[in-house]
Simulated assay, not measured.
Amino acid sequence: MLTVRAPATSANLGSGFDVFGIALESPADVVRVERADETTISVSGAGSQYIPEDPEKNTVGAVAEALDAPAHIRIDKGVRPSSGLGSSAASAAAAAVALNELYDRGLSREELVPIAAEGEALVSGAAHADNVAPSLLGGFTIVTGDGITQVDADVSLVACLPEITISTRDARGVVPESAAMADIVETVGHAATLAVGMARGDPDLVGRGMGDGIVTPERAALIDGYDRVRAAALEAGATGVTVSGAGPTLLAVCRPSSRRAVASAMVGAFEATGIDSRAYQTRVGSGATIYRD
């Protein structure tokens, strides 16, 4: 038996729609695999009641098929589905690493990215790699048609998850099909600033680089209390706030010294809106980790 822990992720980061992603130190999914003649799946943990155990409908089933690696697979969900924290990507990444190791397929982490992304397609409808790449590789990742660039960033974060649900499909449905050139130019500038900030571990640059007037406003409108929570986080010391992935989680960048205050402010602001929430005081973390039982 083999166990792999794969971290939650945050994609887009405001200005990097479908391109930027980061691994979070917490929360995470834990996947245990054991060789078998055919694949079976069991799921426990956060939101497990909403996750199908049929291998043909589960992300890890698609990964097992792609690797020709049948197994008994147990998923312990630490990342709630429909959270905007790469829940399906964490399971897919963990399964890809575990089954690659279990069957000695010899694939690199980079080669596992498209395989894990195919598992993601079962949930989101498309094989995007902006979540699976950081979950596999760790750090800050830039995914383009030419490949993946990875940076080991050191930035403190707060991920605040409200008790509401937004499906990835619905969130993609509000993405504009076109944008004004001025908005595109501004977003490119912000994206460049964010990338430099990640490379330098500079929370001020990262926060400033989260600005986006194209996709984020449309997704923010789906989240009750977004403006209030964002304002509270900035007042408490956050350098930038945006929607994590498809939402409803809000991601705040901050200095380590203000992380607790930012988390408290975000939870309090959601509570003032009548919504329960949970804040993860975290940071950019490493990718999937193997544990041998």
Rank of each mutant, 00 (worst) to 15 (best):
A195H: 15
E110T: 13
D202N: 12
G125W: 05
D204Q: 14
G147S: 04
A121V: 04
S108M: 00
V185F: 12
A220E: 11
A195V: 15
G209P: 09
V229W: 02
D204A: 14
T187D: 03
S156F: 05
S167N: 04
I223D: 04
G207Q: 10
L137P: 13
T149D: 09
Q150M: 04
L122M: 07
G138S: 13
E118R: 15
S108I: 02
E110C: 04
L122Y: 06
I223K: 00
V132Y: 12
M210K: 04
T216I: 00
S108R: 07
R228D: 15
E218P: 03
G207F: 06
D202H: 07
V175M: 00
V215T: 03
A171V: 03
C160I: 12
A221N: 08
I142H: 02
E235T: 11
G145H: 02
G138W: 09
A199V: 14
L107A: 03
V123I: 15
E235V: 02
M181V: 15
L161Q: 13
G201V: 00
D227R: 14
N131F: 04
I164W: 02
T193D: 13
D224A: 15
A221V: 11
R219P: 04
R172S: 13
D146L: 01
V151E: 11
E235W: 00
E163Q: 07
T239G: 11
L205I: 10
L222R: 01
G189Y: 02
